[in-house]
């Protein structure tokens, strides 16, 4: 007998050991997310994948799927919460889309579009963050970092290095680079590393590749992130 749970009333099969988001994705159900990535250990920090499991709010990327769970995903209440979370991410950093190379390919922006976010709602922090352009091939713009830790995890789990970490608390929280000087140029990062390509926003960019795809022809310019995300997952599974 296949084990099942329900998401928004739809019966979904799952296998032992799967998280709710893994079971959902396999069944073609999109749950908004930013820090989740199927190739890496769940982190559960962005909270965009918050769903109601038997009436309690849980992170779908960390919560194990279990027999008979009643999961609410696509509700007005949860999407309103997700929109507020996304707005908080926008006001905490400095996200000026018109001057960012990632625009149109950015998951933060695409999630905002998906949630019909039209404004920032909250007062903006305008906290001063720096740019590290020291590396010959890779640029870090800390203004756009949302602390998803995907680069941290990719560096450790896939590249076998330990280039990034999150340091500091509150407003002083930042992406730290593991090198004597704290600069990217003195770290082990190579431009072919997974960690250099995993950033969902424009915080880590490869130099000399900017604007090769014109604005208007980019990933999310004409298709929503739910369709892109599910299509990508299906592709990955067929590739395996």
């Amino acid at each position: 007998m296949t084990k099942t749970l329900t998401i928004d009333g739809k019966t979904i099969p799952f296998q032992d050991g799967q998280t709710i988001i893994e079971a959902a994705t396999a069944a073609g159900v999109y749950i908004p997310h930013l820090c989740h990535h199927p190739e890496f250990t769940p982190h559960g920090s962005c909270k965009l994948c918050s769903v109601k499991v038997n009436g309690r709010v849980c992170s779908a990327c960390t919560f194990p799927a279990a027999e008979g769970q009643d999961v609410i995903n696509n509700s007005q209440e949860l999407n309103d919460d997700r929109q507020k979370i996304t707005q908080m991410l926008f006001v905490e950093g400095n996200h000026f889309c018109p001057s960012c190379e990632k625009t149109g390919n950015c998951q933060l922006q695409a999630v905002a579009y998906h949630l019909n976010m039209l404004d920032d709602h909250f007062p903006l922090f305008f906290h001063n963050r720096n740019v590290d352009a020291s590396h010959s091939d890779v640029l870090i713009d800390h203004n756009r970092c949302i602390f998803c830790t995907l680069c941290v995890r990719a560096s450790i789990e896939q590249d076998g290095k330990n280039v990034f970490a999150i340091a500091g608390r509150g407003i002083n929280k930042h992406l730290a680079v593991n090198s004597a000087t704290g600069l990217l140029k003195d770290s082990d990062l190579d431009k072919n590393d997974k960690a250099a390509h995993i950033c969902p926003t424009g915080a880590i960019l490869i130099k000399r590749t900017g604007y090769q795809v014109p604005i208007g022809q980019r990933l999310y310019d004409h298709q929503e992130i739910d369709a892109v995300s599910l299509a990508h997952e299906t592709e990955q599974r067929h590739g395996e």
């Binding site: 926008f90 400095n94 996200h95 000026f96 889309c97 018109p98 001057s99 039209l118 404004d119 920032d120 903006l124 305008f126 001063n128």
Partner: peptide, 18 residues
Amino acid sequence: VAVGACAINGGLPAMRNF
């Protein structure tokens, strides 16, 4: 109605905020 990026988040002129 707030029209455009600058009305919504300060936009390019807000880059002087730093």
